[in-house]
Amino acid sequence: MSNYALRLIAVATTLVVATGIGFVVKAQLIPDSFGKYGHYRANAIDEEVQRPIRHGTNTSCLKCHTYEAAIHLKGRHNTISCEFCHGTYADHVSNGKKSGTLPVKKNTEISTLCLRCHNTEIKARSQAVIKTVAMPQHLESQEVKLTHTCNQCHHVHAPLKYINRAKQITGLTEAES
């Protein structure tokens, strides 16, 4: 065998050994839980589970806000999430203590918020699911100023609360929440 052939065998051997070492190193660097359930790091599931919860439930909010609870739970808006209008639980409470103040919508902000769901102009809303109104026709038909905001007649947490109360007082009809 020629000198060159021997040298090439040495080179090839070095390459094979280096590749082998590479694979050994590779095996060491694969994360521990990789492959437990499939071709992925099983611990990533746990890490996802540990992600902090930011939205609570209405029960979480109403536990402290008992005054609002009494109204909200009885009204037609009882399916609306507190946090949609006010912000997330996590921005308000941490470790069981109040940690921040959440905004309360005011005036025209409220009307904008109401019309997000109740605007008749958006035809894609099923009347079986939601009662919609046209603005400003609704204000005109109710004979109130066009500058009125929704919450001047409708309690935001129980929209028919005042209406029904008024009807009861005037004897127009029986109460409906």
Binding site: S2, N3, Y4, A5, R7, L8, A10, V11
Partner: peptide
């Protein structure tokens, strides 16, 4: 590869 071998045998290889 630190090898000067240019012999016909080496070149054939």
């Amino acid at each position: 590869f630190d090898c000067d071998d240019l012999s016909p045998k080496a070149m054939a290889l």
